[in-house]
Amino acid sequence: MIKVLLFAVLAYFMGSLPNGVVIGKRVKGIDIRDFGSGNSGATNAYRVLGPKYGIMVLVADVLKGFIPVMLADMAGIRGITLILIGIVAIVGHSLSLFLNFKGGKGVATSLGVFLYLIPYVMLVVVAAFILVVYTTRYISLASIVGAALLPILTLFMPIREGIDRPSIFIISLLMGLFVIYRHRTNITRLLNGTENKFKVK
């Protein structure tokens, strides 16, 4: 129990790391939340800081979901407990200890968690994400599509040994709904035709 608690704390701490805010202050001397969409995640970092630093934030946010789950797995934590540690990392990103319990929408960190737990599913989700961005130029729409596909694909695609399929389905469904909920303002803008399109710099 103590081991699980320690990894849960580690996952929340790592998830809470506000990479976009830190990198923005380091390289430009600005808080990216004061610009663009006001979000601390990779998409806004790309818009405000440029491609180089946007990609840097994306990779860092993915890793803070991937690493805690990988370390917990290496320490012998399995099943639903391993999945929950990943969820803690995602919650940390969205309710960051360092940002007065505010944060990003959890897409990149969720990608990191599920990339470790269900890599084949995530490859399809990422492919769908890229396709939607390429055809529509809407990052938010691609994130919503990916979140909706995630639980559906867990029903029939291969998953990591030791991961219970019903459990990962329920968790992926809840996380998919959480990500979609975090995009509720984007959904409104998409419906109104006022959502910002992704522009390659």
Rank of each mutant, 00 (worst) to 15 (best):
residue 26 R to M: 14
residue 145 V to D: 12
residue 48 V to C: 10
residue 129 F to W: 13
residue 105 K to Q: 14
residue 88 V to E: 03
residue 153 L to V: 04
residue 72 A to W: 01
residue 140 S to M: 01
residue 27 V to W: 04
residue 57 V to A: 10
residue 8 A to S: 15
residue 153 L to C: 11
residue 148 A to L: 14
residue 66 F to H: 11
residue 44 N to P: 12
residue 66 F to K: 09
residue 45 A to L: 04
residue 117 L to D: 09
residue 187 I to C: 11
residue 119 P to R: 10
residue 187 I to M: 10
residue 9 V to D: 10
residue 17 L to F: 15
residue 10 L to C: 06
residue 51 P to H: 13
residue 150 L to F: 01
residue 103 G to K: 07
residue 69 V to G: 15
residue 126 V to Q: 05
residue 118 I to H: 00
residue 62 V to M: 03
residue 9 V to G: 12
residue 133 V to Q: 12
residue 42 A to W: 01
residue 6 L to R: 05
residue 92 G to F: 00
residue 143 S to T: 07
residue 84 L to S: 14
residue 164 D to C: 01
residue 126 V to K: 04
residue 197 K to C: 04
residue 45 A to C: 06
residue 22 V to R: 08
residue 3 K to W: 07
residue 30 I to V: 14
residue 126 V to N: 02
residue 52 K to N: 11
residue 136 T to I: 04
residue 76 G to A: 08
residue 195 E to V: 01
residue 85 I to W: 00
residue 183 H to S: 06
residue 122 M to E: 10
residue 168 I to R: 02
residue 60 A to G: 06
residue 53 Y to R: 12
residue 137 R to K: 15
residue 41 G to S: 03
residue 3 K to Q: 15
residue 23 I to H: 04
residue 146 G to N: 13
residue 68 P to C: 02
residue 95 L to N: 10
residue 121 V to Q: 08
residue 44 N to R: 11
residue 33 R to L: 06
residue 13 F to D: 14
residue 75 A to E: 13
residue 113 V to M: 00
residue 23 I to F: 02
residue 170 I to K: 03
residue 122 M to D: 01
residue 95 L to G: 01
residue 80 I to Q: 11
residue 12 Y to W: 13
residue 22 V to P: 03
residue 142 A to L: 05
residue 104 G to W: 00
residue 25 K to R: 15
residue 184 R to K: 14
residue 163 I to D: 00
residue 31 D to I: 00
residue 188 T to Y: 03
residue 41 G to D: 07
residue 17 L to R: 03
residue 179 V to G: 07
residue 113 V to H: 00
residue 63 L to V: 09
residue 89 A to S: 15
residue 23 I to P: 11
residue 8 A to N: 04
residue 28 K to A: 14
residue 53 Y to I: 03
residue 72 A to V: 08
residue 132 V to F: 01
residue 10 L to D: 08
residue 157 M to F: 02
residue 66 F to C: 03
residue 114 F to G: 02
residue 23 I to N: 12
residue 60 A to N: 10
residue 70 M to C: 08
residue 76 G to K: 12
residue 28 K to S: 05
residue 45 A to I: 02
residue 19 N to I: 02
residue 51 P to A: 11
residue 87 I to W: 10
residue 144 I to N: 07
residue 98 F to S: 09
residue 31 D to T: 00
residue 181 Y to T: 12
residue 8 A to D: 01
residue 80 I to R: 13
residue 166 P to C: 08
residue 10 L to E: 07
